[in-house]
Nucleic acid binder design. Structure first.
Length: 193
DNA sequence: TGCACGATGAAC
DNA sequence: TTCATCGTGCAC
């Protein structure tokens, strides 16, 4: 298995988010190779995207987002869950794709539908922050075999604070996959439109 | 030095 | 609908 080249990540973030669907996410650790098929992603477009961590400026936490493409941005959320992102576009653009769900392929135990569960199942944590995805321990690769699938899009999850940016269709998932996350129904009221 | 708050998940 | 749980970022 060969890691996708850096050029894959050095492109439009929405395009990368779409094309990551169906790819295999691989993590080798303790002699175990865990593999999951990516079925759900979210695009965070850069410092102008009010839902992105990078929108509030460069800090110690989001430093990796501001770096070159093809690196892992992993952070701890709600004091207990990890989220894995891949940095996209040119150095300094501060965009990334959040990997939200995978379908188990090899050596995966437990549920994988949601960014926190994905990291737990793959044994990915903050120690992987900044890791180059060209590395043999954590990378994304073409699947061994793949059947055609349809892509659906929807608003991103958990970013209601971002106003109009929260309503943009920047979440992508494989239509009909049972491994796509099913977040709790939003308590959002009827919204005029 | 203190404190409010998450790109979540699970229980009630 | 509520809560667990803690690193981060920014206000004092």
């Amino acid at each position: 298995m060969t890691p996708l080249p850096r050029a894959f990540y050095d492109r439009d973030t929405q395009l990368v988010a779409r094309e990551l669907l169906g790819k295999w996410l691989v993590h080798r650790r303790d002699g175990i190779e865990r593999v999951g098929r990516i079925v759900e992603t979210e695009a965070y477009l850069g410092a102008h995207d009010l839902a992105a961590h990078s929108a509030r400026g460069r800090t110690a936490r989001n430093e990796v987002m501001f770096g070159p493409p093809g690196h892992a941005y992993v952070y701890l959320i709600y004091g207990m869950h990890h989220c894995l992102n891949v940095v996209t576009e040119r150095d300094g653009h501060a965009s990334a794709v959040l990997l939200r769900a995978i379908e188990p392929v090899r050596n995966i135990t437990g549920r994988t539908q949601g960014p926190g569960l994905l990291c737990a199942a793959l044994r990915v944590d903050r120690s992987h922050n900044g890791l180059d995805l060209m590395s043999p321990t954590l990378f994304i690769t073409e699947p061994d075999c793949e059947e055609p699938f349809a892509i659906a899009r929807a608003p991103r999850i958990g970013v209601d604070y971002a106003g109009a940016w929260a309503r943009r269709l920047l979440r992508f998932f494989i239509k009909g996959s049972e491994f796509v996350s099913k977040p709790a129904p939003s308590r959002k009221r009827n919204r005029a439109r």
